[in-house]
Nucleic acid binder design. Structure first.
Length: 863
DNA sequence: TAATCGATCTTTTTT
DNA sequence: AGATCGATTA
């Protein structure tokens, strides 16, 4: 096929006759229709937030297939998140079914796909497992013996960065990452060990394909022949290694189209290189540039606030984002005393719009019609306020907790996006280690993790013996690559069998039991259909992907009473393995509550395996999926399966999303931005603010607290410098601004006599008059909609307003307020109950659960 | 050899 | 507050 993308640059006919192009604006259309003419011309789309970028990409894919007759299989579109990849695939398919056959993947999943097929050329067998950061640290700590964990982690981080920058242990440039000779050595050793084990880390998924493409011209040729069009989304987040990969995939005829926004580059910390996008036209000569500067998402006042912060950055391409929507509600900046009130404020704000609005129109109806209202036709009816309009954004995952607590208490449905704790749980990692070892018996990390769990009498001494027998000292087995059949050097299982007779009885028995479990797991797998020779062909088409793998949601509603229940497919193998290894017993035995929880988690993992075939190949896919897509959403409890939920999400995770109403929380110095950020890092935080703010369609709220619980201590908190960078006139300010905030520069303004009162570390409410003087929540009432019922006596009879108390840390105080949780649903066996607010004689105010019992907190006088 | 208790940090952000 | 580390102990 000669240049499939050429020859004409613009298809005039398209303007009028192609309906799916009709609704594009001129710039968007230009971006879609641009195909480059004399081979290899490239396109850089600078797409501001909310400018219809995804639409352009998906339409372009469809256009290339439909109007330019391109084989869908020759299109490669790369994104950075699985979510984006999925969305892109969905939307492209909506325009044209054939887009299904285009390859839309994340960079990393593309890398994995590549390596499964061509890894052997780089000494990698096709059954590698992908190590996550934890595994990497484990491996590294076996190399760096007797070195504090923090340092090991540091080294792991440095190695990951090195790979992001496409630097090998020998590379002179490595000094940029870490100049110590020791580091070079550690890195080299790590690479050696990883090769021996036959697994890869995240960085390898990019770096290794580049190396193979460079050393194997034949492979490179094949790939360049296959992919005629390559698109990269969120190009500003690409790193050097990814740039190299892109370059290697490009032949003289390849049409490259990258899309991005330098103002949304927020992944520098993991090696993203903004210069990739800034210098793209230099690296790909003959690049045309299209700017998408019309924002269809946000109102003008929201964009105004977002831009005013990022405008303080230097070294940006600069663009003017215009709102196509025009005016709207002025964004609100709220000053709050502490993070508890922040959570309360958010909750009340949301309740006011959702429940309040509902009450007005349909008194008797409840949750059920909320669900009905959530999904269908928001556009048709009057925009009804729903929970899913709302998103709460924060800088660190840890911040989600306060909101979760508050929302649970008030029965506000929510989901937490991100926070990958599920796969970090001990029992899950253990099970995965068993599976990994089954797939690759050279996996020392997995072996060490589970061989003696539960205790089988296989101690450290035995483990070392086995590992040694597995063939250390056989240097450079990477060289004679991994294609050999039979027991390969490094095979730990084989080594264990070999030396078993020489071991003491206890160790021998334990080891045998472990190996028997692995064997049982292997037997639960069916033989793979022959897959020899097919490999080369497969490059010509995407592997038959497991469609839309279900997230680990139990299929069977029945809770596992005792044993794990296998469903279909691969889950049989997983259960067998766990049972035979007695991993379930081990975790069950911990203690009643956590044991039960752990078994449930294991059951979830088992359930998620049902969608995979019970073959080695299926197992590999399962593991790969888990490593590459850990996005899980944890729903707020008791919310059923409703889609109508508030979203709790980190700022980083919001990229590509939009919500009608957004609250950015914790906009305080030290948190956002972190106080050690300066220079380029500070600029990145500004961009993060920009990303967050531009998620909002209709309403934007910014929260800043005067105090915050950090490391278990209450610390004073200052408003973020970003808040000072916003023009005050474009904000509505609620709550009491800290002294000096309204003058341009707080530092100089507060240099006067007022300073004395805040000299010590404890900040009294006095500094924020909205706090101390507001008695029972003036600030609250000012903007808080309906507060929970307030009472004189708590419903559990424990407290009355005026009760005197003593607290070990805070001294004497009195109850000044009692709040009952809103009684929406019948009070279940919730441990939460009334909340009492206590003002201590020091002037400090704190709140406690009524049920809170502790020797540190006692009622006096009364009783 | 392993469990347990105190002391000592810790907190980014994610494929 | 919570995790993690290490030293002490059973």
């Amino acid at each position: 096929m000669a240049n499939p993308a050429g020859p004409a640059t613009v298809d005039r006919r398209s303007d009028t006759t192609l309906p799916y192009l009709a609704s594009l604006n001129p710039e968007q259309r230009e971006a879609v229709l641009h195909t480059g003419n004399d081979g290899g011309r490239s396109l850089l789309i600078l797409a501001g937030a909310g400018s219809g970028k995804t639409r352009v990409i998906t339409t372009k894919i469809a256009y290339l297939i439909r109007e330019r007759g391109l084989d869908p299989r020759s299109i490669l579109a790369v994104t950075f998140t699985n979510r984006a990849a999925r969305e892109m695939a969905d939307r492209a398919r909506q325009i044209d079914e054939r887009a299904e056959d285009a390859m839309l993947r994340t960079f990393h999943s593309f890398g994995a796909w590549f390596l499964r097929r061509n890894g052997s050329l780089g000494g990698l067998s096709s059954n590698f497992v992908i190590y996550d950061d934890d595994d990497t640290v484990s491996l590294l700590s076996s190399i760096m013996e007797d070195i504090p964990r923090a340092e090991v982690k540091q080294a792991a981080y440095a190695i990951a960065r090195a790979k992001d920058f496409f630097l090998s242990p020998e590379d002179p440039e490595l000094d940029r990452i870490d100049h110590r000779k020791k580091f070079r050595k550690i890195y080299a050793r790590y690479e050696e060990r990883l090769a021996q084990i036959g697994n890869v880390d995240f960085g390898d998924l990019i770096k290794k394909p580049v190396e193979i493409l460079r050393s194997q011209p034949e492979v490179a040729r094949r790939f360049r022949e296959r992919f005629r069009v390559i698109m990269v989304d969120e190009y500003q987040d690409s790193n050097i290694a990814q740039f190299e990969l892109l370059k290697e995939l490009c032949g003289p005829d390849t049409y490259v189209c990258v899309v991005g926004d330098d103002d949304q580059s927020i992944y520098r910390f993991r090696g993203a290189e903004v210069r990739n996008i800034l210098e793209f036209p230099d690296r790909f000569p003959g690049t045309d540039i299209v700017r998408l500067e019309r924002n269809y998402r946000s109102t003008a006042p929201i964009l105004q606030v977002a831009s005013s912060v990022v405008d303080h950055n230097e070294g940006r391409l600069g663009k003017t984002l215009r709102s196509e929507r025009g005016g709207g509600k002025t964004p609100t900046l709220v000053f709050l005393p502490d993070q508890d009130e922040e959570a309360e404020f958010c909750a009340e704000l949301i309740e006011k719009t959702v429940r309040g609005g509902r009450k007005g129109q349909a008194a008797g109806k409840d949750v059920r019609d909320k669900r009905a209202a959530a999904k269908p036709s928001r556009a048709l009816e009057q925009p009804k306020a729903v929970y899913s309009d709302w998103a709460i954004l924060y800088r660190t995952n840890a911040q989600s907790r306060g909101f979760e607590t508050e929302f649970l208490r008030r029965r506000i449905p929510y989901r937490v996006v991100g926070s990958l704790k599920f796969y970090e749980r001990e029992e899950i990692k253990d099970a995965l280690a068993l599976l990994s070892f089954l797939v690759n018996s050279r996996d020392e990390v997995a072996f060490r993790r589970v061989v003696n769990k539960p205790i089988r009498g296989v101690g450290a001494a035995t483990v070392d013996k086995v590992i040694e027998a597995a063939g250390f000292g056989l240097a450079d087995m990477a060289a004679d690559d991994g294609i050999e059949a039979g027991p390969s050097p490094g095979d730990i299982a084989a080594a264990a069998r070999r030396i078993m007779p020489d071991l003491p009885a206890k160790a021998r028995g334990g080891l045998a039991a472990f190996l028997a479990a692995i064997d049982a797991g292997a037997e639960a797998l069916e033989a793979d259909p022959a897959r020899n020779g097919a490999r080369e062909e497969e490059d010509a088409g995407p592997i038959p992907d497991r469609k839309r793998v279900a997230k680990p949601t139990p299929k069977t509603k029945t809770k596992p009473r005792d044993g794990l229940r296998a469903g279909e497919g691969l889950s049989v193998c997983v259960v067998t393995l766990i049972n035979e290894a007695e991993l379930d017993d081990y975790h069950r035995s911990h203690d009643e509550i956590t044991g039960k929880q752990r078994i449930e988690n294991l059951q979830e993992l088992v359930n998620s395996a049902t969608d995979y075939p019970a073959t080695r190949e299926g197992l590999l896919e399962f593991l790969e999926h888990i490593e590459l897509d850990r996005s899980l959403e944890t729903a707020g409890e008791g919310q059923g399966n409703s889609d109508d939920v508030v979203t709790l999400i980190t700022l980083h995770n919001t990229k590509g999303l939009e919500f009608r109403r957004v609250i950015i929380t914790g906009i305080e110095q030290g948190i956002f931005p972190r106080d050690d950020k300066k220079g380029d890092d500070l600029e990145e935080e500004r961009r993060l603010f920009y990303v967050g703010a531009t998620r909002a369609m209709d309403e934007l709220y910014l929260c800043s607290c005067a105090m915050r619980l950090m490391f278990g201590r209450i610390m004073p908190s200052e408003p973020s410098i970003f808040l000072r960078e916003v023009d005050k006139s474009s904000l509505r300010i609620l709550g009491k601004a800290p002294y000096g905030f309204n003058s341009g520069n707080a530092r100089s303004a507060s240099g006067g006599s007022d300073e004395g009162s805040v000299a010590d570390s404890v900040v009294e409410f006095g500094r924020y008059p909205g706090g101390a003087s507001r008695s029972s929540g003036r600030a609250g009432r000012a903007f808080a909609g309906h507060a929970p019922a307030k009472k004189v006596t708590s419903s559990d009879g424990r407290w009355q307003i005026g009760d005197r108390i003593f607290h070990d840390d805070h001294g004497y105080g009195a109850v000044i307020e009692i709040r009952e949780p809103p009684a929406q649903l019948p009070p279940e066996s919730d441990e939460d109950g009334p909340v009492v607010r206590v003002r201590f004689d020091t002037g400090k105010e704190l709140r406690f659960l009524s049920s809170h019992q502790s020797s540190r907190f006692t009622k006096i006088g009364d009783d």
